[in-house]
Design a binder for these strands. Sequence first.
DNA 1: ATATCCAAAACTGTATACAATTTTGTGCAC
DNA 2: GTGCACAAAATTGTATACAGTTTTGGATAT
Lengths: 263, 263
Amino acid sequence: MLSVKCLYRAVHTYKMIPMDNLIHHPMETSLSPTANRETPRDRMVQALSQAIHEHHLAPGTKLGEDELSDVFSVSRTVVRSALQSLAHENLVELKRNRGAFVARPTIREAREVFEARALLEPRTARSAAERMTPEGLAILEAHIEAEHKALAAGEAGKALRLSGQFHIEISRLADQTIIANFIEQLIARSSLVIALYWQRQSALCDKHAHHALMEAFRAADGKEAEALMTSHLVDIVSALDLRERPHGDTNLKDILSRIGGTG
Amino acid sequence: MLSVKCLYRAVHTYKMIPMDNLIHHPMETSLSPTANRETPRDRMVQALSQAIHEHHLAPGTKLGEDELSDVFSVSRTVVRSALQSLAHENLVELKRNRGAFVARPTIREAREVFEARALLEPRTARSAAERMTPEGLAILEAHIEAEHKALAAGEAGKALRLSGQFHIEISRLADQTIIANFIEQLIARSSLVIALYWQRQSALCDKHAHHALMEAFRAADGKEAEALMTSHLVDIVSALDLRERPHGDTNLKDILSRIGGTG
DNA sequence: ATATCCAAAACTGTATACAATTTTGTGCAC
DNA sequence: GTGCACAAAATTGTATACAGTTTTGGATAT
């Protein structure tokens, strides 16, 4: 039974190994004494975001405010603020007077997410390759390393999240902050799409894809990186089942069965 | 002296002619009795967003919570929620324990905004042209019409906002919701960039540019629309002064003079 | 037995009160 | 006269209490 209660574990996991989350924020300049100090709200956003990315919280899960305020030991004020943030990132859906739910991208949204990624990421990968530095290579290799470790340890969710962060890291290295933020949003939604529409029979294809990209980055071969990223994204989409479901009662019955029956 | 107080006018303007804001939301399906009812928070976001777009609120302006709660007659709870929304759209900047300020994009951010637009909008314009409908043409023409009226009435700010909404409308017609949202964010930030870096001597160039685009849309000529959009964006950037300021004390002195002296 | 309606419970939306932090103004020492 | 230190005022961060809406459960009538 998958519920918010498993956030206990998610929160603890987060607290015990925050390294993975900070791996891409190596230079935190402290301008003011308390300016960059993490607030309870930030911690909550981080933990929820991670739990969703790692598929510990399934799409459609109700995120009750009282429940969350208990789990995180903060007031509902903070909970609402965090939920609003996540809603802006399209990770949760806010329904007026109904509450917050982990977002359930429609098939159309799923298509659009990967269409947008196909538009942005290849060119970004090219940029990143062309301006690649030894430090950038080290960061990317560390991510792949961590992903392999997670996979070996059977932590599929964590591996999935790190796989996404690999893409985010690439966009950061391309030195285009705004586009990097867009890609970050898209990858967050991709995680939900994968949770909903991934078809089991397709093997995890991207293991060698990321390695191939690394080769292009080491060679600073922008054109190759762009081509590899394009085909990588095509591979991911082809592993999804985005056929429109035939009957219309999908909205009611199997949504509920999906929510209650997962995990 | 430009301050939050002029929001009184902004709010009233908004209340008296909300038509402009609803022009692109003609089909509001009411699924639930109160699901789509506008909340005070939405009204506030809308009013502030409009005021920033129309340059009634200059970049850097302090948005005090008490002040806003007075102006809009709501509690600080609602104010904070609205400010958080605007912060997510990069229209306001939240500084911890310092308050909210109308965002001041750096020169680098300004460049990135238009680089991202150059990446997204031409292809989007092409899509829109290829799937243009009579209804779409009517919407775009209505926008141009309204822009001309505003310009004739001397309402430069309103004209600027409508000019931006023309671009947003195009992206909506391209039927790519996610990319349309990205473009909407970029145009919001563009408005701040224009407020900060527009050089007076350059004439308003885009009058005929939008008309030329309309021609391409009427002809459903995607390739032409793409080319026109590309050159249109180049024109806008060339009307900006994005040279790095020579001396470093720009942060302190002329920011203050700019804030205090405008309006 | 089924459907409808009403009441109670649960939950979200909003306002207000309190705590913590930053800013500002004053006074003292050098 | 200048610089630093401390205190008061102002502003933001958080918690709690109350109001409005939705949901749920049962009772009643058909």
